[in-house]
Amino acid sequence: QTVVIGDTTYHLNNPEAAQQIAKELAKKYGLKVVISGNTIKLK
């Protein structure tokens, strides 16, 4: 699972954790979560 935040890319072996982290950050910073395949992007 790949999480992309701005110009930073994180690789996590746990998809659920990756999605949870993405949701928390999106909520905290008012970002939009875009999931395509096994890549999660925060914009």
Score class of each variant (00 low, 15 high):
Gln1Gly: 11
Gln1Phe: 15
Gln1Tyr: 15
Gln1Leu: 15
Gln1Thr: 15
Thr2Gly: 05
Thr2Ile: 14
Thr2Cys: 14
Thr2Lys: 12
Val3Gly: 01
Val3Asn: 01
Val3Leu: 14
Val3His: 02
Val3Tyr: 03
Val3Ile: 14
Val4Ser: 07
Val4Tyr: 05
Ile5Lys: 02
Ile5Leu: 07
Gly6Trp: 13
Gly6Glu: 03
Gly6His: 08
Gly6Met: 07
Gly6Ala: 05
Gly6Val: 05
Gly6Arg: 04
Asp7Tyr: 15
Asp7Arg: 14
Asp7His: 14
Asp7Leu: 12
Asp7Ala: 12
Thr8Cys: 15
Thr8Lys: 14
Thr9Glu: 09
Thr9Ala: 08
Tyr10Gly: 03
Tyr10Glu: 03
Tyr10Lys: 05
Tyr10Cys: 15
Tyr10Met: 12
His11Tyr: 13
Leu12Asp: 02
Leu12Pro: 05
Leu12Phe: 15
Leu12Tyr: 15
Leu12Met: 12
Asn13Met: 10
Asn13Glu: 11
Asn13Phe: 10
Asn13Thr: 10
Asn13Tyr: 09
Asn13Cys: 14
Asn14Tyr: 08
Asn14Cys: 14
Asn14Ser: 14
Asn14Lys: 03
Pro15Thr: 10
Pro15Val: 11
Pro15His: 08
Pro15Ile: 13
Pro15Lys: 12
Pro15Gly: 07
Glu16Ser: 06
Glu16Asp: 08
Glu16Leu: 10
Glu16Gly: 07
Glu16Gln: 10
Glu16Asn: 07
Ala17Trp: 12
Ala17Leu: 13
Ala17Glu: 13
Ala17Tyr: 11
Ala17Gly: 03
Ala18Cys: 12
Ala18Trp: 13
Ala18Asp: 01
Gln19Asp: 05
Gln19Lys: 13
Gln19Pro: 01
Gln19His: 12
Gln19Val: 13
Gln20Tyr: 09
Gln20Thr: 11
Ile21Arg: 03
Ile21Gly: 00
Ala22Tyr: 04
Ala22Lys: 04
Ala22Thr: 03
Ala22Cys: 05
Ala22Met: 11
Ala22Leu: 11
Ala22Phe: 10
Lys23Ile: 10
Lys23Thr: 09
Lys23Trp: 11
Lys23Leu: 12
Lys23Tyr: 14
Lys23Cys: 13
Lys23Phe: 11
Glu24Asn: 11
Glu24Ile: 15
Glu24Met: 15
Glu24Arg: 14
Glu24Pro: 00
Leu25Val: 03
Leu25Pro: 00
Leu25Met: 05
Leu25His: 00
Leu25Asn: 00
Leu25Gly: 00
Ala26Ile: 05
Ala26Leu: 10
Ala26Val: 03
Ala26Asp: 05
Ala26Phe: 10
Ala26Asn: 03
Lys27Gly: 04
Lys27Leu: 10
Lys27Gln: 09
Lys27Thr: 07
Lys27Ala: 11
Lys28Met: 07
Lys28Ser: 02
Lys28Asp: 03
Lys28Thr: 02
Tyr29Asp: 04
Gly30Ala: 04
Gly30Val: 02
Gly30His: 07
Gly30Tyr: 04
Gly30Asn: 06
Gly30Trp: 05
Gly30Met: 06
Gly30Asp: 03
Leu31Ile: 10
Leu31Met: 08
Leu31Pro: 06
Leu31Ala: 04
Leu31Trp: 09
Lys32Leu: 13
Lys32Phe: 07
Lys32Pro: 04
Lys32Asp: 09
Lys32Trp: 09
Val33Pro: 00
Val33Ser: 01
Val33Thr: 02
Val33Leu: 12
Val33Arg: 00
Val34Gln: 08
Val34Asn: 02
Val34Gly: 01
Val34Trp: 06
Val34Met: 06
Ile35His: 04
Ile35Lys: 04
Ile35Arg: 04
Ile35Gly: 01
Ile35Leu: 07
Ile35Phe: 06
Ser36Val: 13
Ser36Glu: 14
Ser36His: 08
Ser36Phe: 10
Gly37Ser: 03
Gly37Thr: 02
Gly37Met: 05
Gly37Gln: 04
Gly37Glu: 04
Asn38Pro: 02
Asn38Glu: 04
Asn38Ala: 08
Thr39Ser: 07
Thr39Asn: 04
Thr39Tyr: 06
Thr39Val: 12
Thr39Asp: 04
Thr39Ile: 13
Thr39Phe: 05
Ile40Ser: 00
Ile40Asn: 01
Ile40His: 00
Ile40Tyr: 03
Lys41Ala: 10
Lys41His: 14
Lys41Val: 14
Lys41Trp: 15
Lys41Pro: 00
Leu42Trp: 02
Leu42Phe: 07
Leu42Ile: 12
Leu42Glu: 01
Leu42Ser: 01
Leu42Met: 05
Lys43Gly: 06
Lys43Asn: 09
Lys43Phe: 13
Lys43Glu: 15
Lys43Trp: 11
Lys43Ser: 13
